[in-house]
Design a protein around this nucleic acid. Structure first.
Lengths: 180, 180
DNA sequence: AATCTCATGTAAGCTGTTACATGATTTA
DNA sequence: TAAATCATGTAACAGCTTACATGAGATT
């Protein structure tokens, strides 16, 4: 019954105990590159995971009106996460607004479309440069079994994705330039 | 106020009048590669577009209990769509279950992870072969201004995406093979 | 004195999925 | 005669976003 968000939370908790607030920070960056959630969603999901016995917490009095809750994985939670990792991902439908716009681009002025793609290209190139800097910080792939293997492998995916997107944007810009 | 789904419907209607049923078929393939919706969502969205004056319809008596409704774009609908095309896409958060699993893969057995990636690779290669066949059917890019430019450009994106994914899967399989 | 970070929660609303409901025409 | 295709709709639910609500401690 656990949703994908639930597993995303378990995946973060597998690296160490955290408060809901900490998990929300992780869901902005670095996990946010492939799964995001706001704090409201995280707190409600944590309550479900708790009810299911997949996580537990210890209350520590911190700032604010309520006690802060430091969550950790239970044995059940770890087992369930490990199981989930190798289950085939259910492919959810692709939804890509830029590609949809491209599908209808023939209706618009080529110059305006080109400008939009130039902006997209700049964004992809900026992210690519950032990822390349991050990759350089690793001396190479960490061994499988090390949690950092996960960080490196997902970074590799991001790197490859940004290159593909940038390349496609450049192709589009060329096409649009030819037609002007 | 129009949602992205609304624009997806307008984009389909820009190529010719269609019933809700026809639009649903388009949303499975070929538009389904970058935007999908079930028929129930399409019928309710068409009612909103109608209320907003972006589409109109003519009732024709067809099979089934109700008349079939052949929808078309109004002048307002065309103008709104043309405007939307060059507005910068609002980037929605990435949500990629396979990459999330990769992030937590260090917990699982390398052999099981490798099998999962091998399955993913096979799926990407199959899609790639299909897209390559479709690309061959075009003699090259149609001119901008032709609706088929949209089809070709989105196909190009799909081709590039599948290559990137397949490459990343192969890299993962290599990493996992080394650790066995 | 004002703002930022830490910290947890509820509620309303939108988007998207799945199931329910109906029924004629065409094809196997 | 059984199934697939054509055709439109409603209802219930799950997932996600945005806004509301509170408040201590640290920094500017």
């Amino acid at each position: 019954m656990t949703s994908t968000l639930g597993f995303a939370i378990l995946a973060v908790l597998a690296r160490g105990e955290r408060t809901g607030y900490d998990i929300a920070a992780n869901m902005r960056r670095p996990v946010g590159f492939f799964w995001t959630a706001g704090h409201s969603q995280i707190h409600t999901e944590l309550q479900k995971l708790l009810a299911g016995g997949l996580v537990g917490y210890e209350a520590v009095h911190g700032p604010g009106p309520q006690d802060k809750k430091v969550y950790h994985l239970t044995a059940d939670g770890t087992a369930r996460l490990r199981e989930w990792v190798t289950e085939p991902p259910r492919q959810r439908p692709e939804r890509d607004e830029l590609v949809l716009k491209t599908y209808a681009a023939w209706l618009a002025e080529a110059g305006l479309v080109r400008r939009m793609f130039a902006e997209q290209l700049a964004a992809h190139e900026a992210r690519l440069a950032e990822y390349e800097r991050e990759e350089a910080a690793f001396g190479g792939p960490p061994p499988f079994g090390d949690p950092m293997f996960g960080n490196y492998a997902t970074l590799r995916c991001g790197l490859s994705y940004e290159r593909h997107r940038a390349e496609w944007c450049r192709w589009m810009i060329d096409q649009l330039s030819d037609s002007l």
